[in-house]
Design a binder for these strands. Structure first.
Lengths: 118, 118
DNA sequence: TTATCAATTGAATACTTTTGCAATTGTTGA
DNA sequence: TCAACAATTGCAAAAGTATTCAATTGATAA
């Protein structure tokens, strides 16, 4: 019955692996947001957004609350923002690494002289 | 042509979202490992492991090098370990939160008195 | 060269996730 | 109560991923 930890981790990352879900988490990083405004920022079908919000809710990293006819979402905990920061750091480094590699491929015979577009 | 950042992030997380890939990254966190030993630790078909290693290689978070007839993998950078740590922290907290919620659901009328299996 | 072993690739099948439409729920104001 | 609006759910079609087996590559040693 116990889920192995590596499987829980995989599910957690998979849950993050969707552009709309990333955007939602980043918007919620700035504070609680009504669905209406997520919808305006992201610009997809309401039902698609709801589906993705449901994924985040089921995973427990966001919570929602109804105020009259609107629903507001917020991050369930502060660690989510940490994770996004860690991911950004890695991505930045990886993309930088790739850019350097590309430069090397473009100029295979340079050896230290800056090209002006480092 | 430029990939939006939120999409790059989503792809990155999706790339992490597989139990075998998580296990590989954790094993590589302890240092470089030959395929042979990953295979022994994880216990799946060689071709399945190769497929997952290929995903990690394409993403650029591991590198491989051949020594004679064996291939050794290692993490491409130290930040990957950071990310895994951040993820572990969140997961731990989330699982703890769920356990507490479960306790509350089990004993809906308690209000502070410990049950003995907190 | 050929046999052998480690690792990888290709390709078909099975599986899971995403998407978009229609139908539904919940809430407010007329 | 009924109309109107926000958000959600159900579901079928489409898109994307994983798994497996057979075929292939690369390296070594007989």
């Amino acid at each position: 019955m116990a889920v192995p930890l590596y499987q829980a981790k995989a599910e957690f990352f998979r849950m993050l692996g969707h552009p709309v879900r990333i955007r939602v988490l980043e918007l919620l990083g700035e504070g609680p947001q009504p669905v209406r405004s997520l919808l305006a920022d992201i610009g997809i079908e309401p039902s698609s957004l709801s589906q993705q919000l449901a994924v985040l809710r089921r995973a427990g990293i966001v919570t929602s609350s109804r105020e009259g006819t609107n629903v507001t979402y917020e991050l369930a905990g502060p660690d989510v923002a940490d994770l996004m920061r860690a991911a950004r750091r890695i991505l930045t480094e990886m993309l930088t690494g790739q850019a350097e590699l590309l430069d090397e491929l473009r100029e295979p015979h340079t050896s230290g002289a800056p090209t002006g577009r480092a």
